[in-house]
Amino acid sequence: MRGPTVTDDAAIGYYGVPPVKASPFDWKIAAYVQIGGVAGAAQVLSAVAAAAGGRRARGVVRHGRWMALAGAVLGPPFLIADLKTPTRWYNMLRIARPTSPMSVGSYILTGFGAFSALAALPAGRLSDAAQVPAALLGAGMATYTASLLSATSSPFWAEAPRSLAVQFACSSVAGAAAALSLAEQAAGRPGTAATLDAITAAAAAGELAASIASGHDHKEPAVAGALALGVAVPLACHAANRLSRRPSRTLSVIGALAALAGGALLRHAVIQAGNRSTERPRDTFRLTRPPEPARLPPRR
């Protein structure tokens, strides 16, 4: 007699009942991941501009600090709204648990918000000093949300922890450079905007490489669509601007908007794909296949 095996599609599992449960995370978490990631990366880019950009990058430094603070203020309400008992949001800081990305993330967010508030003070020694820790925590903001998703048992997130983190990190940097580029264009500084567009393009290329490396063998159309918008459009716009003798402001703006929208869509699509992947027993059992043939007793 044959029992079901991992390769027998129809017979696997128990009446198709999901062996793991889906997270309750919805668009509010996706919104936070995008806002927090872009804010964190904006602080990083602002710090880079302060260190390496010289006088002409001062606008970028200032705008980056403001964006970081704005994200640190606007993001958390989405997190709190997603709690099922929101009045107890402060319990997030009740303990510190290094094994929990959500606990670690709560402290990253708190520290990032505090230092970003100081860094947004009028230019001076205090704000410059505060920007260093703010930018380091900002790098964490750009990344930790992906690790938070991967440190679960949802197959879509759990099977690619590294590439998911690189995708989120790159998408955050692309989004921040795009937002800063829009601000530079608005201020009539196309030169710095072009530098920022190049950073967006570099980050988009990284995102693309990571998504190819992730090797998700079930196709998620929404994730692919988000990549097309957030990666292909900015890359194409940037390439066109590099090749033409007169870089177009419109192309720069379109590329930046696409990077931001694509980033938001990517977060939402990845969260939905992870939740949905729990409903496919085959994906869970593929994730939990033993690394070497198991020593189960003989089948009768």
Binding site: G53, T192, T195, A202
Partner: peptide, 26 residues
């Protein structure tokens, strides 16, 4: 992996800002 990606892009951004002086890049 994620922090390494941010670090790499930070380096790239520093080079781009440095080369263009934050100015007429592109």
């Amino acid at each position: 992996a994620g922090l390494a990606a941010v670090a790499g892009l930070t380096l790239a951004a520093a080079l781009l800002f440095g080369r263009n002086g934050g100015g007429d890049g592109g």
